[in-house]
Design a protein around this nucleic acid. Structure first.
Lengths: 361, 361
DNA sequence: CGCCGAAATGGCATCGATAACATCGCAGGG
DNA sequence: CCCTGCGATGTTATCGATGCCATTTCGGCG
């Protein structure tokens, strides 16, 4: 068995890193040799193929253990054509929504035996998104979750979505794409209706940037609800999701006597709004009611605790993965958009118009 | 030139996906054929090799464009042995710190021409971390940033860090590892000293979970500072980083008459503490001063705005990548631990003992 | 005018794993 | 007793790009 010395200068060429002395990572061939079987058998064993004798399997596993063998994904993919990896394109920020969504996606993907590769983009412009998708394509992902509030879809992106199964999350849909989304219109409706039911005669709105699709949907939902109730629609204030922008808009709102209720498009902005109102001496919720969106962890622990609309991000990530995998396995399946529903969480930042606050929870 | 039909049943074997009709992704060979050059020349052109005639380069690029060619990372890696990818092991949470760190890492890595592959782990136990590192190793990463508050390092993990260049961030060091960290002891010192200088005769502490190295360091820094000032060291309260745990501890602190100053190990917990104190009728900062750690975006926009210790996460991510790359390129380089310094940001949640609050900013 | 050397390009082996096919051995039916 | 059939394993070709070496091309200089 030890007939051939491993060092018997096989080929004339040595590829390995210049730094000698470092033992190279063992490959399947090494495992096979040690176990006294062929590489193919090793492959079968590790793939869990049924037709392998227990004794052989044991030998292989022992060899794997002994050599500290680790499979080489690049080789596996090149050979099999499958990467068992899905890609996520997401904005490079730490917005609560993005982070949690990614969380959900990763969990679900891992459970299904897929790895996740993330490509972040610093901006929303088409070129940057194209780049991110290209990077994923180069990595050989089998599918992509586009978690970017796309409004404009470039032809190039559309082409990409045609060659790789894609699910958009909170983004606009393209012909070749499945869509999974939280019903943002409903979120806005819930918030606005809540305020109307408390007796407010008008509800103001601090929106997100209009390039963001979910900001636009929330704005639309808010407007529709007001109109349906026969109420006036005040002008829209626009923020950029940051607490600072909420603060700026809060300073404006606080100076307008009519304002008794505000629907803010995100919790972080809502914090800024409340802070500004506070400084202007307008009490929340006694003078002005505020509703946010997201239900971030801190929403419950500020004063007053924030009434908000919770979005099931994690669940949505899972749903997106499920759709994507279905689509990968059966490319001809129909694209049925899926929608998950947000839920209103009433806390202490809203109160009947002109009334006293409810007792704090 | 058109002497051989492409369809001349070359090999007996067809690998491609069963679904026929779908044109397969073009490869270098296809590009080469279209451009009328060899695959090798295509490779050189795309790698930016200098010795390629402009005219040839142009032809190649045109062919690439026309075919929509995308390089195949798996093949490239298998062949060259380099993946130009670094891995990040991180906890699957949306803690502010983790998110921002990842942000910094990604940005820096991308600038250096490296891709980033993230492996998240749901728990801190050794097995889970081993798994995450293995996943990265299988992907062929050239280096790893371990962003996990490791306290115990298993031999197996140590073995892994020996075969792949590794930088620990906020984690304990292993012999084969470089360390980049925020000086958490200093963070605690800054916060505690600030409170002492305001005249408080004792400073309480709400710590993070003791398994977390940074929680432990902050706790140590706090204790040392108190002792150095000749003050008593009150018992430690322990939270789990969540606002809820801060709230629970706040309820306890609020019942203890002696308490006039609290150093909380994270901003999110600090929010909970403040909320609890509020409910118990203890005013912040008039009755009790509170300092947090992290400087999350909302710290400035709550009432009162939060005095906190800012940590340069993004910068630290960049530093970690720089170290890692240096180590990848020169494996024999010395491991010098690097430290970045946190900064105290004084806002409105702290005031002189028994004194009135400073005017709000 | 011819030869040299650098620039430009092509040929071939190779990375590590897998698919497809070939082989071998053994059990049971005709 | 031979042959079929299936289970277990080995063999070979291949995925796509790159490293190394060979080859061609060409400008310049003795």
């Amino acid at each position: 068995m030890s007939s051939e010395t491993p060092e018997a200068g096989k080929g004339p060429v040595r590829k390995r890193t210049a730094g000698d002395g470092v033992a190279r990572q063992p490959g399947m061939t090494d495992v096979a040799r040690l176990a006294g079987v062929s590489a193919q058998t090793v492959s079968r064993t590790l793939a869990g193929h049924p037709n392998v004798q227990p004794k052989t399997r044991a030998k292989v596993l022992a060899a794997v253990e002994q050599l500290g063998y680790r499979k080489n994904n690049a080789a596996r993919m090149l050979s099999s054509g499958r990467s068992r990896t899905i890609g996520v394109v997401t904005l490079q920020t730490n917005f609560y929504s993005r982070t949690n969504l990614t969380f959900g996606i990763e969990t679900a993907a891992r459970e299904a035996g897929y790895a996740v590769s993330t490509a972040t983009t610093a901006s929303l412009d088409t070129a940057a998104i194209e780049q991110a998708m290209s990077r994923l394509a180069e990595q050989g992902v089998e599918g992509v979750v586009l978690s970017v509030p796309l409004v404009h879809v470039s032809p190039r992106i559309e082409q990409l979505t045609r060659s790789v199964p894609t699910v958009t999350v909170d983004g606009s849909r393209t012909p070749a794409t499945e869509v999974v989304a939280v019903d943002q219109t409903l979120a806005a409706r819930l918030a606005t209706r809540h305020l109307i039911e408390l007796g407010h005669e008008s509800v103001w709105h601090v929106a997100g940037p209009k390039e963001w699709l979910d900001a636009a949907s929330r704005c639309a939902g808010w407007r529709d609800t007001l109109q349906a109730a026969g109420l006036d629609v005040p002008p829209v204030l626009e923020g950029d999701w940051t607490p600072a922008s909420g603060y700026r808009n809060g300073l404006i709102l606080g100076k307008i006597p009519d304002v008794t209720a505000v629907f803010v498009a995100s919790d972080e902005m809502a914090f800024g709004v409340i802070r500004a109102l506070h400084e202007l001496g307008r009490r929340v919720p006694e003078d002005i009611s505020v509703v946010g969106v997201d239900d971030i962890a801190l929403a419950e622990y500020c004063s007053p605790s924030l009434t908000t609309v919770a979005q099931p991000f994690t669940e949505m990530g899972a749903l997106a993965v499920a759709h994507l995998l279905r689509h990968i396995e059966d490319p001809d399946a129909a694209h049925e958009p899926a929608c998950v529903e947000p839920a209103l969480i009433v806390r202490a930042s809203t109160a009947p118009v002109g009334g006293r606050a409810r007792p704090r929870p």
